[in-house]
């Protein structure tokens, strides 16, 4: 049996991995099912069929209101944040060639958190809100993500060799530094900021709105397409330091571009949903188990898994512990840390 389907049109041709296609379709179906299930659950429960109807505006007017104004934006924001973080993690794991790297561990999330909290503190008026449009917030997080990404990247160079280990170590050091600075800004900043920033840093999609969903959706789609095009470069990078060069690929330049894309994706997710931890670590890993490590299939599948993970975490967080609401980031970390332990345990003899 052939493993691939050849796809040829005039001017271009590519192979589609059959297994990848099956897994992708299955994951897509699960994602849609999870979205519908999550829409149905909450303070006001409804059946899956009612929920599906309401998504398209065909339910009762009350259901339509609850679903379309409150639940759906939140769920979609969770989905896009999860997808962005997962793709970002998949890229980083390719660059670092270590399955344990992720945007939160190498300091990209930390940098984004710092600039976001600074933004909230700088433009604060009378403890009530911010003096300029909140729409600029993503730009602040993105700037933080990119800056810390580049800083880690350049500091990890020595004699023009990028060592993956050094990248990880410097990222960890940098995130410890930015964490202290973030807490400091929270401390000297206005009172309301501390609790707001705290919720936000943990990662929560509470209070999502349609404009946020649209913005993140566009942001994610653009960078996802670029990543998908560059997937072959990632495949080559996985082969090590020497092979890419001998294959005519400029290893360092590719790494830089991919790192910026990865930071951009994380920055987008952090801007709207905060620092949801461990998704960038778990999702690519699970995807690798399902479809292998060829990036053409790995990237879309990780994205779907990331979306599923964050939606499930958020749904549990807002339904199980009522009347308390647990931020999605706490739950992803609660699943993610044991998973990380399992990864360390499994890789113990390599």
């Amino acid at each position: 049996m052939k493993h691939n389907i050849a796809f040829r049109v005039k001017g271009m041709s590519f192979l589609i991995n059959k297994k990848g296609l099956y897994v992708f379709s299955a994951a897509l179906i699960i994602l849609i099912a999870v979205i519908i299930a999550s829409t149905a659950l909450g303070d006001m429960n409804m059946s899956m069929i009612e929920a599906a109807k309401s998504i398209f505006g065909g339910g009762t007017s009350l259901h339509n209101l609850v679903v379309r104004s409150f639940r759906l934006p939140r769920i979609l924001l969770a989905a896009f944040a999860g997808m962005a973080l997962a793709v970002s993690g998949a890229i980083l794991q390719g660059i670092v060639r270590n399955p344990l790297a992720s945007p939160d561990i190498i300091g990209i999330t930390g940098g984004a958190s710092f600039t976001t909290v600074c933004f909230l503190a700088l433009f604060n008026i009378n403890d009530k809100g911010v003096s300029i449009s909140i729409a600029w917030l993503p730009l602040a997080s993105f700037a933080g993500a990119i800056l810390s990404g580049l800083l880690v990247y350049f500091l990890a160079h020595k004699k023009s060799i990028l060592s993956p280990f050094r990248l990880v170590l410097i990222g960890i050091g940098l995130s410890a530094g930015t964490e202290a600075l973030t807490k400091f800004v929270m401390l000297i900043g206005p009172v309301y900021l501390a609790s707001k920033a705290n919720t936000w840093m943990t990662g929560s999609v509470n209070g999502a709105s349609w404009p946020q969903v649209t913005a993140l959706a566009i942001w994610f789609t653009v960078f996802f397409i670029i990543t998908f095009i560059l997937a072959r470069r990632l495949n080559i990078l996985e082969l090590g330091e020497a092979v890419p060069v001998s294959l005519g690929s400029s290893s360092n330049k590719d790494k830089k571009i991919l790192l910026i894309i990865s930071a951009a994706l994380t920055g987008g997710a952090v801007a709207f949903a905060g620092g949801i931890g461990f998704v960038g670590l778990m999702a690519p890993h699970m995807a690798r188990k399902l479809v292998g490590s060829a990036y053409g299939a790995l990237i879309p599948v990780s994205a779907l898994i990331g979306g599923i993970l964050v939606i499930i975490s958020d749904t549990i967080g807002r339904t199980v512990f009522l009347p308390l609401e647990v931020p999605a980031g706490v739950l992803t970390s609660a699943i993610g840390a044991p998973y990380f332990v399992y990864l360390l345990y499994k890789s113990r003899n390599h």
Binding site: L100, I172, S175, S195, G329, F340, L344
Partner: peptide
């Protein structure tokens, strides 16, 4: 590298649990 990674992951877990506890109780924050 393993020690640092394990430490970073556990620190991330602990601090996100800490923050989760704090979001549920603003006075103690």
């Amino acid at each position: 590298i393993k020690l640092t990674l394990a430490g970073a992951a556990m620190a991330a877990l602990f601090s996100s649990l800490t923050q989760g506890l704090l979001t549920s109780n603003e006075q103690s924050l």
